[in-house]
Amino acid sequence: MIEDVPIISINVKILKFWSFILVHNWRRYISIIPAMIMNVAQFLDMYFTTEPIDSIARNFYFVVLWFIAVMRALYLTANRRKFEVFMENLEYMYHEIKRDGEKPIVNLLNEVTNNARRISKFNLAFAAFVSTGFVLYPLFTGDRALPFGVTIPGVDKYAEPAYGIIYAWQVIITPMGCCMYISFTSIVVGYMMFGTVAAQYLQHRLRKLREPGDTDRMVMMKIVWCVQYHRRLIRYTSQLNDLVTYVSFLEFVTFVATICALLFALNIVTTFQQMFIVSTYIFMRVIQIFTMYWHANELSDQSTKVAIAAYDSPWVDFNVPARKALVFIILVAQKPLSIMVGNIYPMTMQTFQSILNAAYSFFTILSQIYG
């Protein structure tokens, strides 16, 4: 069962509960439809707003956050079968490494699995903490306010009973939005972390091509297995890239805009409470993107080390056909296996740094314009 694979099980179970994958029931609609309606109301609020610039910056952050959450949920449900097939392949490869019984790699897999589970739990716990702040913030403003700015044509959102209904509606759908947003990030990170283990597993096998008592035929069979496994790893990364590349591009564009807006808001707020809240928003966005880019970078880095592992094998003792097969692995491994942002930029730490630089540059321009 896919949901029993420990490295992704937490997020698979959450996404399955809301019927984004594996099942199709009423929960999908009670999570997506209210979130879509609210996001439309948020866009209307941004269009008609007359609030000060700091409130606009804060509301813009929430508009983008909910828009990404809804887009992720819709994308996941529209491509549900592709995700399921991909996870079935991951499940097979995961248990294959377990069955192989190579202690260093099994220990590594267990360690990475534990790390992936810790990341998922941290993301969920932190999202719950921040979401609680979202929904409780209006209670401490001293005025009637809503967690997320919305405009509903013909409705006075601050008059009863509309205010109570809208407030309750936003409180109820916030946990659903967390599941849409956080679980998607965490499960993609789990995919990347397993790809890193698979690359290290291949490296381990390449370094042990000849063991005492192995004949040339046995060595050649091991090399053929390594060639085939490398192809599987390439296919795994390519399929993962197809699943996340356009979602990553949406994150790329919106991250620059939201961080720029939040930095501007941080620059003009006057109270400690406001500074703390805006800083928390910034930290949440940065940590989510950083986690994805870090592990995508690790996958790319480990894939290039396959060539080094092949060269580190005792190839001088091999026959000519075996050496040629090793050269083939080395040549193919020269190109890193990268997760792309919109099939344009590789998802690496260098790209992440460029995003931060772009966000800060736009922030300085915005600060100069508004003094």
Rank of each mutant, 00 (worst) to 15 (best):
Q170A: 13
D312M: 15
W66H: 04
V244W: 13
T280Q: 11
S354E: 15
S31K: 10
Y92I: 13
L233A: 08
T215Q: 10
Y229T: 15
Y167N: 03
P175C: 03
M46Y: 08
N267W: 03
R117T: 08
Y29S: 08
Q288M: 14
W169N: 03
R118W: 03
A333G: 12
N357V: 14
I119H: 00
F272V: 13
I166M: 04
I68K: 06
D242A: 11
E251Q: 04
I33N: 01
I14N: 12
V40M: 02
I330A: 14
A116P: 02
I33K: 09
W169P: 12
M218F: 00
C179V: 15
G371H: 12
Q239R: 04
S131I: 02
E102L: 12
L243V: 08
Q288F: 10
S313M: 06
I14D: 05
I30S: 14
D100E: 11
L139E: 11
V189A: 15
Y75S: 06
L250V: 14
P147A: 13
F328Y: 14
S55M: 07
R72M: 14
N107Y: 00
T291W: 00
T364V: 15
R217T: 11
V320I: 11
F194V: 01
W18H: 06
E88D: 05
V244C: 06
Y181F: 12
S55G: 03
I8L: 05
K13V: 01
I21R: 01
V227A: 06
D45V: 01
R232H: 01
M93Q: 03
F43L: 11
E111G: 09
V106S: 02
V64C: 04
R72N: 04
A78G: 01
E211C: 11
Q228W: 04
F129D: 00
N123K: 13
K335V: 05
T174E: 02
I308H: 02
M87N: 03
F83E: 01
Y229E: 15
L136S: 14
L266H: 06
M38S: 07
